[in-house]
Nucleic acid binder design. Structure first.
Length: 318
DNA sequence: CACTTGACCTGTCCGC
DNA sequence: TGCGGACAGGTCAAGT
């Protein structure tokens, strides 16, 4: 369930790994891979050089030298995995430590949230790279040097679009997104303003609304509300500016903390090669129902708010 | 207008 | 061991 920090992590990885590479071939035998475009796709992709990788909310924008851009949304189970050329040619060889290290660095995990690791919804990192493409692979980009970028999506909720670069900002999905929480211009007064536009709604619903602000999903909504001691069902209108500013601070803190951890999976996951799971989640409430609140010891509860699984401390967020 | 529900999907887990 | 059903959650569309 990639949210802002996970997508940001992927963006940074892709920036390092695919910018400057030239597309040699693309296979996209999938309705949501480049819909509404048939043979044109190849014309604008093949031979195109990757100019930049950007993130907008939970979406990725890959800008190409053909003045076309690829817009990608990972939704729940999307992954983008880069596999360098050596992976294929060395498949049957005994893997050297150096090769193993290269492989670790080249793997970008989209299954970045702690629960994904814990509950095994994703591929274990160590076995993923050597076995691609697999049955969840929807789109494959091959670069001229023989490396590949795989778009995998178990549940097919995600999508990949190709559109002229000038049209990205007018794409319906991009167009309705609110401001980026981590922009330097997104100060606490802006946050309060944005939240007030959803004043009548439950505060969790407001946080999740991508048009209020972009990038917050279920995990960081729960985590930031817990940190700010605000109950998810509280109406925004019932929360003072002061408390909203606290929420702002906690939200930014949680998002940045997660990015520092490589997008909410810690290094255990990325470095999972042969190392047993000494993984520890930084999450304070998310998927911790039945466990003690780290702040007061009360038992974390799970309920449904705005149609989503919601985790709260009955004491701290009373 | 605000909110809920269902749809989109598939893999996993739980209870019988 | 198998099987049905609940569940996961980002986003959109339709219904209340």
């Amino acid at each position: 369930m990639p949210e802002l920090p996970e997508v940001e992590t992927v963006k940074r990885g892709l920036e390092r790994l695919i910018v400057g590479r030239t597309v040699a071939d693309v296979s996209h035998d999938w309705p949501k891979g480049f819909p509404n475009s048939s043979n044109d796709v190849d014309a604008f992709l093949i031979g195109a050089r990757v100019e930049s990788v950007q993130r907008r909310g939970k979406a990725l924008v890959i800008t190409l030298s053909t003045e076309y851009s690829i817009l990608i949304h990972l939704k729940m189970t999307g992954q983008l995995v880069f596999v360098p050329n050596e992976q294929h040619s060395s498949k049957s060889k005994v893997e050297t430590p150096k090769l193993a290290a290269d492989r670790q660095r080249s793997t970008i995990s989209l299954h970045t949230s702690p629960d994904e690791v814990r509950f095994g919804a994703g591929h274990p990192n160590e076995s993923l790279v050597g076995h691609l493409p697999d049955k969840s692979t929807r789109v494959v980009f091959e670069f001229v040097d023989g490396s590949h970028l795989y778009f995998n999506d178990q549940r097919k909720f995600g999508w990949v679009k190709l559109l002229p670069s000038y049209a990205v900002q007018d794409d319906p999905f991009i167009k309705k997104l609110g401001p980026e929480p981590l922009d330097t211009s997104f100060v606490n007064t802006i946050f309060v303003q944005r939240m007030r536009t959803a004043n009548k709604r439950m505060i969790k619903a407001a946080l999740l609304d991508q048009s209020v602000l972009a990038g917050v999903g279920n995990i960081y909504a729960d985590e930031s509300l817990w940190a700010a001691r605000i109950h998810p069902t509280e109406r925004v209108s019932a929360v003072s500016d002061d408390r909203l500013r606290v929420l702002y601070t906690e939200l930014i803190r949680v998002l940045k903390l997660s990015i520092e951890h490589g997008g909410s999976t810690d290094k255990t996951y990325v470095n999972a090669e042969g190392e047993s799971g000494s993984y520890t989640s930084f999450a304070q409430v998310f998927r911790r129902e039945g466990l003690p609140c780290t702040r007061c010891g009360s038992t974390i509860e799970k309920s449904k708010v705005a149609g989503r699984g919601t985790h709260t401390c009955p004491q701290c967020q009373a």
